[in-house]
Design a binder for these strands. Structure first.
Lengths: 205, 205
DNA sequence: TTATATACAAACACGAATGTATGTATAGTT
DNA sequence: AACTATACATACATTCGTGTTTGTATATAA
């Protein structure tokens, strides 16, 4: 029962990625042997090595599957022409990010793996850059939006776009990390939309 | 040349912890074999197993060495009676945290290990709780401080202590994570004091 | 129709890491 | 002075994971 059709092969590829996500999330990346992942996917290591060069490549594939759509969704809100107030766009974009995070378990698992179940050394140190780049990009995007808000006199007087952008940048990053770090202790997730709203209210005129 | 004196034994214990920190930081916790750590410390695995039950216990010891003093220093600022404005105390406490982080490489290495070179599963999942607890405690502390500021009418009108506390909480966490995530890309570290000041200025009357 | 590349499974070879058990010289203790 | 616990070093056994190689049935292209 070998030599599947192309569609079937693509299907097993997806199943391997899904299994990897589950095993990574359960055991951490380092302790997730390819054999464990293969068995979780109902295949052997042969199949895994056929589709992916090694564990790192499998990890990257898993990550890319959820990262790109996430960026697309948040950017769609950020640049939604329906908002004539840039501050509303920023708020909507961040809110959308955490909404997806709360609603989609796959996304949540991948983020949790990347935040607290992966060691960024050697082959994986590039992951940190790949995560850092969108983070930097996000900073630049919202700085431009805040600049627009500033030009439109929508920012509270005395506030500089660069500074409030960095503040929002840190706030967002912290919120993301805290959702995973202190998840069981608090009902933080329920409060997130209110926190985002309060954060933005701080800088509205 | 065995059976050292008690002081010498304590010294090798410290050297093992220091070696562990270096190796953890270089290779990540998972890929740091006890043999590698032992050799970095100039001893054999026998010595490591004599002082520590396993890698996790060694990790905990390394962490505790820098965590407790850090908490003491930031709390000292937070509760410094010299500040009659609680907002100044909060600002000083956070500033102090990042000042120590910038100045002390040992502290920086340990935090970097904990943030991006350790997988929080199995034996290490308890670490996440131990880190989450002080984080929660910090939230409660600054919420009380903000409450005092509120009572003294030092908070900008319309702001609720609980909300600004959470905002500062997320901001601080994000700043910490971003210093390691985007370190090489930007000169972020230089800007941190200004960012903290701007963050606090947002909520001052 | 035949040939070939595909999509895996199965087997192999190797290193690396762990935990433990044992050896041993000496600092402390009585 | 003799004894014992200490502070390691050394050796052993075992497990686990990886990368590669080989085998093989079949989809697919010619």
């Amino acid at each position: 029962m070998v030599r599947k059709t192309k569609e079937e092969a693509e299907q097993t590829r997806k199943e391997i990625i899904e299994a990897a996500r589950n095993v990574f999330h359960e055991s951490g990346v380092s302790r997730s042997s390819l054999d464990k992942i293969a068995k979780a996917a109902g295949v052997t290591r042969g199949a895994v090595y056929w589709h992916f060069a090694d564990k790192a490549e499998l990890f990257f594939a898993m990550r890319e599957d959820v990262f790109a759509p996430m960026l697309a969704r948040t950017d769609a809100r950020l640049y939604d022409p329906a908002f004539d107030n840039p501050l509303d766009a920023i708020e909507a974009s961040i809110t959308e990010f955490f909404r997806v995070l709360a609603e989609c378990e796959v996304v949540r698992e991948v983020f949790e793996i990347m935040i607290s179940r992966c060691e960024y050394v050697d082959e994986f140190s590039s992951v940190q850059e790949e995560v850092g780049r969108p983070a930097l990009a996000f900073l630049e995007k919202i700085e431009r939006m805040y600049q627009q808000a500033f030009d439109k006199q929508l920012l509270r007087p005395g506030l500089l776009p660069a500074m409030v952008a960095r503040d929002t940048w840190a706030f967002t990053s912290g919120l993301l990390h805290l959702t995973f770090g202190c998840r069981k202790n608090t009902g933080l997730e329920q409060e997130i939309p209110a926190m985002i709203q309060a954060h933005m209210a701080l800088r509205r005129r």
